[in-house]
């Protein structure tokens, strides 16, 4: 068996309180490199909570998560942040672009924070990503000048800025029309096939879920089904 990009073992997330609430319960899964996985399930089933755990945005109450061969259990907040910056990319239902920054600066922000590239290289890569996502010529515009679908593509470009190993997308088409949704779906699909970037999406959209290699169904915080749609990438 090859080493998985991400391996979650018995992940559980419980919110403490007078009446503890379990959001995710004993979920184990593997995400291979270049794999496109959709997480589906009814509202309140714990899909987003699982995504936040996989994206190192939240800490599990129990269980472990190994990303790119590193067990993340002992990571402090800063190391988790550094890992997110270097290895993960996020796309949310709301684009969350910084309104004061141009598209170019929004996409350049993670690269500037990481500091691996010099400024001319950062600008060139940001421009290339925007062009690849069909936003060439708009790079100096502010986000509020764009349509919802365009903004979501900028958010994807920003998620790709540091060439992450894994893109985590939470309802990325939740606020988009069908044409824009299809566009986003194709972009994410291409990332998997062409760049071997793994993608995990949470979605309510059955059509969007069909684009995935695997569909995980979550019910009441537990993994209910794990169905492969296409042949696993090599």
């Amino acid at each position: 068996m090859t080493t998985a990009l991400l391996e979650a073992r018995e992940l559980t997330r419980t919110l403490p309180g007078d009446v503890p609430v379990t959001l995710v319960e004993r979920v184990s899964l593997r995400i291979e490199r270049g794999e496109f996985v959709s997480i589906v399930g009814p509202s309140g089933s714990g899909k987003s909570s699982l995504l936040y755990l996989l994206g190192l945005l939240d800490r599990p109450s129990s269980g472990s998560l190994v990303l790119d061969g590193e067990d993340t259990r002992g990571f402090d907040d800063d190391r988790l942040a550094d890992t997110r910056l270097a290895k993960l990319g996020f796309v949310f239902q709301f684009h969350f672009l910084l309104p004061e920054f141009s598209l170019l600066d929004n996409v350049a922000l993670p690269m500037r924070r990481l500091g691996r590239l010099k400024e001319p290289a950062i600008q060139a890569r940001a421009l290339e990503l925007l062009q690849r996502l069909g936003l060439g010529g708009h790079e100096r515009k502010l986000p509020q000048k764009l349509s919802g679908g365009q903004r979501q593509r900028v958010a994807i470009a920003r998620a790709l800025a540091n060439a992450p190993l894994l893109i985590l997308a939470d309802e990325p088409t939740g606020n988009l029309d069908s044409a824009s949704s299809e566009n986003v779906r194709q972009i994410l699909r291409e990332l998997c096939t062409e760049q071997r970037t793994s993608v995990v999406t949470v979605t309510h959209d059955p059509h969007f879920a069909q684009a995935a290699d695997r569909v995980l169904t979550l019910v009441d915080g537990r993994l209910h089904a794990d169905e492969s749609r296409q042949s696993q990438p090599a």
């Binding site: 994206g55 945005l57 907040d77 800063d78 942040a81 550094d82 890992t83 997110r84 910056l85 270097a86 996020f90 949310f92 709301f94 969350f96 910084l98 922000l109 993670p110 924070r113 990481l114 920003r158």
Partner: peptide
């Protein structure tokens, strides 16, 4: 707050 959250999720330290 949302911008701060996205910056944190992106990898900015506290």
């Amino acid at each position: 707050t949302k911008d701060i959250a996205i910056l944190k999720s992106m990898g900015f330290h506290a």
